[in-house]
Write a protein that binds this DNA or RNA. Structure first.
Lengths: 194, 194
DNA sequence: TAGATTGTTAATCGATTAACAATC
DNA sequence: TAGATTGTTAATCGATTAACAATC
């Protein structure tokens, strides 16, 4: 949901206590009725002539999105992209804590990046088991991705955030979210050729 | 569209000459009728009992997506993420050619990364004008993003691929594609808390 | 009270799916 | 010819929008 970002921004700009469905709708470019329905569906009631309690909405949205619970995660693949994901501290406020990165290249392992240790993939399974990691961020090249994913799953990973530009075949019960960035590129390229 | 990736993969696996709407639908988990409609809408006709000419479909899709025309692009922000985007060579086959990167930190400028020169943002406007760049990839922190975007637009940029975790306000006529990665995270986090 | 805003039901719109004659 | 697959029209489904009485 997009509500989260809007609320975070709006509240930081000015300390507003109430927000109407019309305001949210305006900012997000959707229908006010839609906003009222969404908010209603997660148990929020507004007040006539006043609107919704901004803080309550923000909290409820955070809760629904799961951002108020911390998930431990590992990054696999400490190349440029993996490094970017590790170094970007912004995931913390979404409840994501990257506790380690793994790479098969000994030249990369043994160091730290932004406080995050980079280990060799040898120890990956043991680490996952030991810390009961359920979420893995896959930032390897496309080639090895499927193999790595299989290993992750067999070690107990329940959700994979896939940045490798390939489609993974995974058993049911494991959630995957493909971040195929090139799709966005397609839209822009299309626009430019008009 | 997702057709592109499927076709590229399918054709590399085995040299197939014909492909049926059912096959594509199966692989992409959509309805066969949908596939026939989409293909029909871009002028492709299939043949009864045979299907579609795989090569023709691949070409037409590439054309519609604009991947058969090369777009020059610059990256702004040569941090971890910017570096990842530069180093990842995969955009070339989508018709994107990153010709330079810009950063305001003198410690980063003057070098090359994967054959791509990293320059100081001072010279950005002149560069955009000189090479008639229309597409910019924004990989700065959220804070400076809006300012950078404004400068890009005033220099003639027509499309911005925004990786900065913020919403940009831009004039009409400039296309923006927000790559808010955290949305994917939200989905996964939600799954894990079930 | 008066009026803005909600919650919800009904209507519209579009997209997805089913059905089937036409085609190769 | 026989049969698989298409192209397209019709039906279904869901999501979005409009309308309006209830509420604060």
């Amino acid at each position: 949901m997009l509500y989260h970002r809007y609320l975070a921004e709006a509240r930081s700009r000015r300390a507003l206590t109430n927000v109407t469905s019309a305001q949210i709708a305006e900012a997000l470019d959707i229908d006010p009725t839609q906003v009222r329905k969404d908010l209603g569906s997660i148990g929020l009631r507004g007040r006539g002539r006043v609107g919704f309690d901004a803080a309550a909405v923000a909290d409820a949205v955070r809760h629904v999105l799961g951002f108020d619970r911390t998930n431990l995660a590992i990054v696999v693949g400490a190349g440029h992209l993996g490094g970017a994901l590790i170094a970007y501290g912004g995931f913390a406020r979404y409840g994501l804590r990257i506790v380690a990165a793994f790479d098969s290249d000994p030249a990369k392992t043994g160091k730290e990046l932004a406080g995050c240790p980079i280990r060799h993939t040898r120890g990956m399974r043991a680490f996952i088991t030991k810390y009961r990691i359920r979420l893995a961020i896959l930032a390897t090249p496309a080639e090895g991705a499927q193999k790595v994913a299989d290993r992750l799953v067999s070690a107990g990973i329940k959700a994979i955030w896939n940045f490798a530009p390939t489609r993974l075949a995974l058993p049911k019960g494991v959630a995957v979210r493909d971040e195929h960035i090139s799709l966005g590129l397609a839209q822009l390229a299309h626009y430019l050729t008009d």
